[in-house]
Write a protein that binds this DNA or RNA. Structure first.
Ligand SMILES: [Zn+2]
Ligand SMILES: [Zn+2]
Ligand SMILES: [Zn+2]
Ligand SMILES: [Zn+2]
Lengths: 132, 132
DNA sequence: ATAACGCTTGTTATAATATAACATTATAAT
DNA sequence: ATTATAATGTTATATTATAACAAGCGTTAT
């Protein structure tokens, strides 16, 4: 449950801190406006940092939202096996850390002869609060 | 393995036929350029059709590619439980129809008390051909 | 030391994806 | 027929993402 430490460049650190401070997934341009005061002025600077952070597995992209969250799973080294739950109402997003699930999916094989190296799973529903 | 029949409007039919004829997932603007000769001129016309077709489950959106494929799974009524394999090299995308997998995921429960209504799973790897 | 390298940065411009807003027309339900 | 619902056409704009190029910095090989 604790943050990973990696050697990051200045812009990468700034972007990562912004994402970690947020309680919700952040979109790239929302990050950009947050970091303008720190001297990051243009989209490519943000997107490059995001790309690297995703590669390193310290953040993940929620594909269906075009948004980024920091990884809270210390076992999740390189964003190769990710699962999220997304509340349709309040947009709360939680990374699912369930070893049975990840084992099941990591070992999953279909009949097409394809070798899977990576997966991303997104569940949608209503969170505990919004269900009431 | 056969196509579903639903009552579709004119634009919805045009967009759906275009997607069905394609061998690869199509992007919205690629669809738009294909259907201009049929009188569809502007993005909203395409996006509205896509939205409806996704709702109906006759097509699916590949979130990580912003692309659309037609559903070949006759059991897949409303795009509520979808899984795809995506070749990183040739971009070939296949809808995974595996009842064990869908049962497993449909019944999956984590410890957050969230009720899942829908999921989308995308596997990445190398297809049979590209593996060689 | 200095050249070469990999990596990050800064910057401008533009591409690609998606929606807002509004007027109109077709279809279905009562 | 009247009303409601869904689909269309259109213009403009918002949002997301990348191309392309110049410059800087730290490491390492010679
Ligand atoms: Zn993670
Ligand atoms: Zn919620
Ligand atoms: Zn399907
Ligand atoms: Zn392939």
């Amino acid at each position: 449950m604790k943050h990973k430490q990696v050697n990051l460049s200045k812009n990468q650190q700034i972007v990562l801190e912004t994402i970690r401070k947020a309680k919700k997934p952040l979109k790239a341009y929302s990050i950009l406006s947050s970091v303008k005061k720190k001297g990051i002025n243009a989209p490519p600077q943000v997107y490059r940092a995001l790309e690297k952070l995703v590669e390193l597995g310290v953040i993940h992209k929620i594909e269906s939202k075009n948004a980024f969250v920091d990884c809270k799973n210390s076992e999740c080294e390189t964003s190769k096996a990710t699962a999220f739950s997304i509340c349709k109402k309040c947009q709360k997003i939680t990374e699912i850390m369930n070893s049975k699930l990840s084992t099941y999916l990591t070992n999953f094989q279909d009949n097409t002869g394809m070798k899977y190296e990576k997966y991303n799973l997104e569940f949608y529903g209503l969170c505990k609060r919004c269900k009431l």
